[in-house]
Write a protein that binds this DNA or RNA. Structure first.
Length: 267
DNA sequence: ATGGCGTTATTTTAACGA
C-alpha cells in the first residue's frame, strides 16, 4: 500500500495537480490538509473518476482536512476526542476547528487507522494560538494513548502537517528561527512525546530534505525550507513500512502548494 | 528596515500561513 500526506493549500486550486500526483506516484491513500473549503465545495468528481472514495471535513475557508482512498474507506471520524477549541476573538464562540479526520483504510486484514492532521500554526510564542497549539498536541497525545490502550496491536498512522520542526536540521537556518514557533522546546517536546507511547516517525529513516518552502524570498530555489510534515506510526504499522520519500518535484512550477507530499510505502 | 507570495471571502482590503 502506498500512503501519502500532503498539505495541498486549497484543494479547489490544486485539484489537477493532486490527481496527477496520485496517478504518477501510484498512491492508494492520500491524507490532505488545508483543503480550505466546505464539503459541498470539494471537487469530488475528479478524484472519484480516478477511483478514490472521499471523506471530507471542512467548516469554512480555513483549515479543512480530507482523505482519499482507493483501497476502502470506513469508520470515518471527524475530530478526535478531547480536541481543543479555538475562538477567533475573545468574544467569539469557541469552535472545534476542521483539523483532524480519521478513517479506516486498506484491504481487510491489513487495515490502517489513518488520521489526517493539521496541527495549529501557533503564530507567535506569546500568542494565544501558540498555547492552543500546545494544548492541541497534548490532547492528541492523550487520545492516542487511549486508542493504543484499547488495542496495542493496531496499525495507527498520525499523518499530516505537524507544524513542528523536531530537529535543528529540519530548518535551513536556526538563527532565522530564533524566537519563532515551530522550533521551540515545548513544541519539540510535544512532538517527541509520541515516541514514549511507542510511536515512531517513519519517513525520516528513508527520506531526507524539507517538506515546506515559503512562497516568498526564493525559498524553494535556494532550498531554504522546513521539515514539518510527518507520519507517526504505531509499532504494528511501523513494522510494515518498507520505504518513504518526499516528492520535491511537486513543489516545482506554477501552481504548486508550498508543501510537498510525503509518501510511505507499506507491506 | 520592510516586504517580497498565494489563497479565501457577503473581496476593492484583511486575515492567515510558517
Amino acid at each position: 500500500m502506498r500512503l501519502a500526506t500532503w498539505n495541498v493549500n486549497s484543494i479547489r486550486t490544486r485539484i489537477d495537480r493532486v490527481v496527477a500526483f496520485l496517478e504518477r506516484e501510484d498512491i492508494d491513500v492520500l491524507a490532505m490538509q488545508e483543503i480550505k473549503c466546505k464539503p459541498e465545495q470539494f471537487p469530488r468528481d475528479a478524484l472519484e473518476a480516478a477511483g478514490y472514495e472521499l471523506a471530507v471535513h471542512g467548516l469554512d475557508q480555513w483549515n479543512g482536512v480530507a482523505i482519499a482512498s482507493r483501497v476502502g474507506l470506513s469508520h470515518v471520524t471527524t475530530s478526535f476526542p478531547g480536541q481543543p477549541t479555538w475562538a477567533k476573538s475573545p468574544d467569539a464562540t469557541p469552535v472545534v476547528e476542521a483539523r483532524a479526520l480519521g478513517a479506516s483504510v486498506g484491504a481487510p486484514g491489513q487495515q490502517v487507522l489513518l488520521w489526517s492532521l493539521y496541527v495549529p500554526n501557533g503564530r507567535e510564542l506569546d500568542h494565544p494560538h501558540y498555547r492552543y497549539k500546545l494544548s492541541w498536541l497534548q490532547a492528541l497525545h492523550h487520545a492516542t494513548q487511549q486508542w493504543l490502550s484499547q488495542d496495542p496491536s493496531q496499525a495507527l498512522a498520525l499523518a499530516g502537517d505537524w507544524n513542528v520542526a523536531p530537529l535543528d536540521e529540519d530548518v535551513w537556518d536556526m538563527e532565522a528561527f530564533d524566537g519563532a514557533t515551530h522550533v521551540s522546546a515545548p513544541e519539540r517536546e510535544a512532538f517527541t512525546a509520541f515516541a514514549r507511547l511507542g510511536l515512531s516517525e517513519v519517513t525520516r529513516p528513508h527520506a531526507s530534505g524539507y517538506t515546506f518552502w515559503d512562497y516568498q524570498k526564493l525559498r524553494f530555489p535556494r532550498d531554504e525550507g522546513m521539515r514539518i510534515d510527518f507520519v507517526q506510526a504505531s509499532p504494528a504499522l511501523a513494522a510494515r513500512v518498507t520505504g518513504a520519500s518526499i516528492d520535491r518535484f511537486e513543489r516545482k512550477g506554477k501552481g504548486a502548494s508550498d508543501h510537498a507530499p510525503v509518501i510511505v510505502t507499506l507491506e
